[in-house]
Amino acid sequence: MFTALGKYILLLRLSFKKPEKFSVYWNEVMREMVSIGVGSLGIICIISVFIGAVATIQVAFQLASPLVPKSIAGSISRDSTILEFSPTISALVLAGRVGSSIASEIGTMRVTEQIDALEIMGVNAPGFLIAPKIIAGISMIPLLVIISVILGLSGGYIACLVTGSIAPVEYITGLQDGFDPIIVTVCAVKSVVYGFLITSICAYNGFYTEGGALEVGQSATQGVVYSCVMVLFADLMVSSLLL
């Protein structure tokens, strides 16, 4: 375990060494931003709308009491969406979509000796392959989480219109009542941490792949599993520290 942690830290140090040519690295960062951000936008939009709608309906069902104002459902849906649903569920989905892609891409380059060729040419392979992915991850995943929050709250409003479980006016009132800015801070910190964990862990698993095509698949699977576990652990730690 400690050997793996040491290799992980060493790989991160090599990844963020001074680049040989900034323009090449900048192009790679832009390419990864498009791949992570635009490529993941569709699935994030779909799950966010449905999660927001389901959360609102379930909260309304659980608070079906004349003693509880209906608007409280909007407040609970808002806080749960911003604090937990949007950042964490989005990160778990992105671990499967983005993480597996990163691990398999780098793993394939390792087993086909493309990384060895880069190193022979004097290129810092970790910096060229991994750093742009990490930078793109911590840049684009927070933006995806912001979109997820907006669509999640919109999904709750749509659920109010369709099901009639809560009056839309009461839902909007609940969204505005008792808002605490700390939940936005927690959401932002979580999204940045998740972006770093997903990209770095999956890149690590791909970079140290040995064997052939079968091992590339195993590395991608391990990267997704490890990053999901670390996302849940980071969720606990960030929530405990900031709330």
Score class of each variant (00 low, 15 high):
181 P>N: 08
20 E>P: 10
208 Y>G: 02
102 I>Y: 14
118 L>K: 06
167 A>K: 08
102 I>N: 15
223 G>V: 15
23 S>H: 13
34 V>I: 12
176 Q>P: 02
227 S>A: 13
64 A>L: 07
109 M>A: 04
25 Y>V: 15
98 V>A: 13
241 L>W: 10
97 R>A: 14
82 I>K: 08
15 S>C: 06
129 L>F: 02
202 C>W: 10
206 G>M: 04
157 Y>V: 11
221 T>G: 02
198 I>M: 03
131 A>W: 05
173 T>N: 10
178 G>L: 02
53 A>C: 06
154 S>H: 09
235 D>K: 04
73 A>L: 04
141 I>H: 01
95 A>Q: 09
15 S>I: 03
180 D>R: 12
158 I>D: 05
186 V>N: 07
122 G>V: 04
87 P>E: 07
148 S>W: 01
224 V>Q: 13
205 N>F: 12
25 Y>W: 14
189 V>L: 01
228 C>T: 14
63 L>Y: 07
104 S>T: 14
203 A>R: 12
125 A>G: 09
1 M>D: 14
166 I>R: 07
9 I>N: 02
169 V>N: 09
146 I>F: 13
208 Y>Q: 03
45 C>N: 06
62 Q>C: 06
8 Y>A: 09
9 I>L: 09
53 A>E: 03
55 A>T: 11
39 G>I: 07
188 A>G: 12
12 L>R: 11
230 M>S: 06
143 L>G: 00
145 V>E: 02
163 T>V: 05
49 V>N: 05
156 G>S: 01
170 E>Q: 02
217 G>I: 01
210 E>W: 09
148 S>H: 02
181 P>W: 08
164 G>S: 03
86 S>K: 01
119 E>A: 08
196 F>V: 00
151 L>W: 07
179 F>N: 01
72 I>F: 08
168 P>L: 06
83 L>N: 12
204 Y>R: 11
190 K>A: 00
221 T>Y: 02
25 Y>M: 14
27 N>M: 08
65 S>N: 05
46 I>G: 09
186 V>F: 10
150 I>R: 02
47 I>G: 01
29 V>S: 01
113 E>N: 13
171 Y>E: 06
235 D>F: 04
50 F>S: 07
193 V>E: 00
101 S>E: 10
190 K>G: 00
41 L>Q: 04
166 I>T: 07
86 S>G: 04
30 M>G: 07
6 G>D: 14
205 N>M: 10
77 S>Y: 03
227 S>F: 09
69 P>S: 02
172 I>Y: 11
163 T>H: 07
226 Y>P: 13
171 Y>S: 08
46 I>M: 15
240 S>T: 11
198 I>Y: 03
71 S>F: 01
192 V>W: 01
63 L>V: 02
211 G>S: 11
156 G>L: 00
123 V>Q: 07
220 A>L: 13
95 A>N: 08
143 L>Y: 02
64 A>W: 04
133 K>T: 05
